[in-house]
């Protein structure tokens, strides 16, 4: 059988679509792991990035740490955390959060820093207090960058959650590693395609989110800046 036939056969096997090891279940697991890690990472990194961006304090440290984190191999971070904490879902989640925080933090920080000082001056001059400047001016203007950071982190998390299956948790990576162990190439390729699909869905999700959440007044400027 050719590779295409193997993959087609795997996708068309109804047994692969049901039960706890079926495609929908694995897809749901993968989504749940990723979403949970993203929620925690965003809850940490967005407020932190807003704070460092707004006050200008600790920004260099945050950006430096995040840039250094970029040079670390994700599998190293993941296996180290799992080895230190033991096999299980929590260590995997911790590793995912650790990897997701830096891009969100840096982009949020840079996004807030990039707000035109003239706008801050206008906001303060009109009598906005610090939190009002942050929520009514800096956050909405920085939103495209915040979303870019979240998207970058989400792509990273979806990818790393795949590798997490190697240590025994669920998700789409299971198809890849189980298929590899059983020498079933249709399953390996099918799992890989599903992972790729999920990554594309993440892009679509963030594209929609940006259409909904970012003011049209910013989108034209953004087209010029281009991400």
């Amino acid at each position: 059988m050719s590779i295409y036939e193997l993959v087609a056969a795997w996708f068309s096997d109804p047994g692969n679509w049901t039960g706890p090891g079926g495609i929908p279940a694995r897809f749901a697991e993968h989504t749940a792991y990723s979403a949970a890690a993203m929620a925690v990472a965003a809850a940490i990194a967005v407020p932190l990035g807003l704070a460092t961006g707004h006050t200008g304090r600790g920004g260099l440290l945050a950006v430096g740490l995040a840039n250094a984190a970029r040079a670390l191999p994700t599998i190293g971070v993941m296996f180290l955390v799992v080895l230190a904490m033991g096999i299980g879902l929590v260590p995997v989640q911790v590793a995912l959060v650790v990897l997701a925080v830096p891009p969100i933090l840096v982009n949020t920080h840079e996004g807030v820093r990039a707000v035109d000082p003239g706008l801050r001056d206008a906001a303060a001059g009109m009598g906005m207090r610090g939190p009002q400047v942050l929520l009514r001016l800096e956050l909405p203007v920085a939103l495209p960058m915040v979303l870019l950071g979240l998207r970058t982190a989400a792509v990273q998390v979806v990818s790393t959650a795949t590798i997490a299956a190697y240590v025994g948790v669920g998700g789409l990576g299971r198809f890849i590693f189980d298929g590899q162990n059983r020498q079933e190439f249709g399953m390996v390729a099918g799992g890989s395609l599903l992972v790729a699909l999920m990554a594309v869905l993440v892009l679509v999700f963030f594209w929609l989110l940006r259409r909904l959440a970012v003011s049209p007044g910013l989108r034209a400027r953004e087209a010029a800046v281009r991400e």
Binding site: G118, L119, G127, M128, V141, G217
Partner: peptide
Amino acid sequence: PALLRRSIGYVIQQAGLFPHRTVLDNIATV
């Protein structure tokens, strides 16, 4: 300071309009 500034009009170079708000909402800020 905040209350004082709300009672004083302030116009700056380049206007300093909020890019994410419509013109009407900009004017309605204070």
